[in-house]
Design a protein around this nucleic acid. Structure first.
Lengths: 134, 134
DNA sequence: CTTGACTTTAGACTCAACTCCAAGGTTATG
DNA sequence: CATAACCTTGGAGTTGAGTCTAAAGTCAAG
């Protein structure tokens, strides 16, 4: 199959597939005599793998590392794979914690303001923000 | 005070302050005869306000909108300010939900894998990702 | 008067992850 | 065989939020 069909089968754009090859995320594709890239069912699996990783919020660099393991499975252990995911999980948890503390700060601010239709001259939200008190 | 002192008082870099003025986030500064920008205590308050907004994860565009309210407080109401924060809060909550579902998916994946030191050929993490099953 | 620290500007560069473009080559269809 | 629909490449542009540079002007201290 050529790149257009792979794109429609995988849900990725032709440009994205070429981009992934260029940055070394995807292995270089075989070429037909015409110079066209040639793919098979296995390529769909690989792109499905990449899609999964993207859904999990991984960076392309991290996906590249994990795909290297995937494409040489027999050389890696479950331990390695699980450890990799554990690391990603840790990063997600850190982001969550940051976001949670932002949410809390924002809710605190929100709750101190009366929300009435009087002028905002004494608005406790604005005042706290002026003081850097968030 | 000149820009260097404002920078050290506010914790922002000289470049950042000039950048904020350029994109219209900060009002254009008064100039000395030399052409140097001139600031006062009030400028520190404004930058402190901007810092607070950044700590709350707001985009510069949103900060610009909120700062317009702050700089013309008497024209706005607490209702408006509180509503603005409520919107931001909503966005943060949406991000949290996305992150939460990523975390759950990742934890599910993580927990299905034995994590042993055998080859990853049958690793349930890799297999689920190949299937797009995340 | 010189030196060093400060300031000015326009404009280029960074990161991530694409997306788009132009100019050309190939293939499938009528 | 003409035409449309595909494919190729290198390279430029996008977004957000800065950061850095070069070349020039200003100011305070010794």
């Amino acid at each position: 199959m050529r790149i257009g069909e792979l794109a429609s089968q995988s849900g990725m754009s032709v440009d994205t597939i070429r981009y992934y090859e260029k940055i070394g995320l995807l292995p270089t594709a075989n070429r037909l005599a015409s110079g066209y890239r040639q793919y098979d069912k296995n390529s769909i699996t690989v792109l499905s793998f990449v899609s999964s990783a993207k859904k999990l919020g991984m960076s392309l660099d991290d996906i590249k590392a994990l795909l290297a393991i995937e494409l040489d499975k027999s050389a890696a252990s479950c331990e390695t794979v699980k450890g990799f995911i554990a690391e990603q999980l840790l990063q997600v948890e850190q982001k969550m914690d940051q976001l949670k503390s932002i949410e809390q700060a924002m809710r605190r601010l929100h709750d101190t303001c009366c929300g009435g239709d009087e002028s905002a001259l004494c608005c406790s939200i604005l005042q706290a923000m002026e003081r850097g008190d968030v």
